[in-house]
Simulated scan of single mutants.
Amino acid sequence: MLNSLSLFWRRFHRRWLYPAISLVVAIAVLLSVPLRLQAISITDLIFQGVQIIQLSNLSDQQEVEIGKQMNAELTSREFRIYNNPTLNAFVNQAGQRLVPKSDRPNIPYTFQVVADQNVNAFATMGGFVYITTGLLRLADNEAQVASVLGHEIGHIAGRHLVEQLKQVAIQRGVANVAGIDQSELVGIGVELALNRPNSRQAEYDADQRGLRTMSGAGYAPSAMVSFMEKLLKGSSGTPEFLSTHPDTGNRISALKSKINPSTANRGDGLNSSTYTSRVKSLL
């Protein structure tokens, strides 16, 4: 009898203890935040706690699936993928070279060129990275393109959009008793990817991750700094790419502090003539 009770307790402990602790912690966090003037019921608090647990434990597979749905929405309604297989293959090749050296190499990555003369690049969830023809036209060499792709991979590795999605989804209440409303998550994710800037902390984090990634992949690290400086000097206003990337001057200084001047230009991708013949001729 004692053995049976002991076995039951061990099974119960493993199955329910940690979720129960997570729920209690989530509710405690909610209770620690100053409440609005109107009363919030304990049922609402428990429900919000469940949402936090659900959204904080998105698996890689779930994130990739949401990213796929976001990609379908973006490419069918928001912008057009540039119809040049050679150019898309070039960008994808550069991106895939970076992936094994990134902080999150174990998910599939998709790199796509967007037909847009504006200088821009962004990442969504689950390995989807977008770069515009305008940015490719502005870049001087492959290493500068790799620096942008590395930065966007850094956002994915840091799960920055996932964190934003979690915050907004909890505010809007997209979960229900059956689980997370995935279609709502996709809609919020698209909205965030297009319109909401990353935090200063997220940008610094993506910069540092991107610098490590491109250097590890064999690209010259100086290209990340030179492209940011090019963006700042070459525009009378703030480029779209920087409008959602705050404190660019400080970011450049932070990057320079991480790069050894004696090895800054050591690596691949700095040949401008090769880049022009391979890429700019296709734009």
Rank of each mutant, 00 (worst) to 15 (best):
V177E: 11
E163Y: 12
A139D: 06
T110I: 11
G173N: 12
A157M: 09
L136R: 03
G126R: 06
N120V: 04
F128W: 09
Q144D: 06
E152P: 10
I107C: 13
G179D: 06
L161T: 06
V168Y: 05
D116K: 03
T110Y: 12
G150M: 15
H155I: 10
L136E: 11
A143G: 13
A178N: 06
E142I: 14
Q167T: 15
Q144N: 14
R159W: 03
Y109V: 07
L161I: 07
E152Q: 13
G150Q: 09
T110W: 02
V177C: 00
I170N: 04
V162C: 09
V168G: 02
N118G: 10
V174C: 03
V174W: 01
I107S: 10
A115K: 10
T133S: 11
E163G: 08
Q164E: 15
N106H: 12
G126I: 11
Q112N: 13
Q144W: 10
G154C: 13
A178S: 13
A143H: 12
I180E: 04
I156F: 05
Q112K: 08
I153Q: 09
P108Q: 09
L161A: 12
V168P: 01
I180G: 02
R137L: 15
N176Q: 09
V113F: 11
A115H: 07
V129Q: 02
K166F: 03
I131E: 05
V177Y: 06
G126D: 04
E142F: 12
T133G: 12
L135S: 09
Q117Y: 14
L149F: 13
I153V: 15
F111Y: 14
S147K: 04
G127E: 07
D140R: 15
G127F: 14
T132F: 05
A139N: 07
I170D: 02
L165R: 01
G154Q: 08
G173V: 06
V114M: 05
V174T: 13
V113W: 11
E184G: 03
V168N: 01
L136N: 07
T132E: 06
I107N: 09
E152D: 09
A146V: 15
Y109I: 04
E163P: 00
F128L: 06
V114L: 02
E142S: 13
H151V: 15
P108L: 09
N176E: 02
N141A: 09
A169S: 15
D116L: 07
Q167G: 05
D116I: 03
G158A: 15
A143I: 08
A178P: 01
Q117E: 12
V113I: 09
V186M: 02
E142H: 07
A157F: 05
S183F: 01
G127M: 13
G158V: 07
Y130D: 11
V186D: 00
L185P: 00
T133M: 14
V168D: 06
G179Q: 04
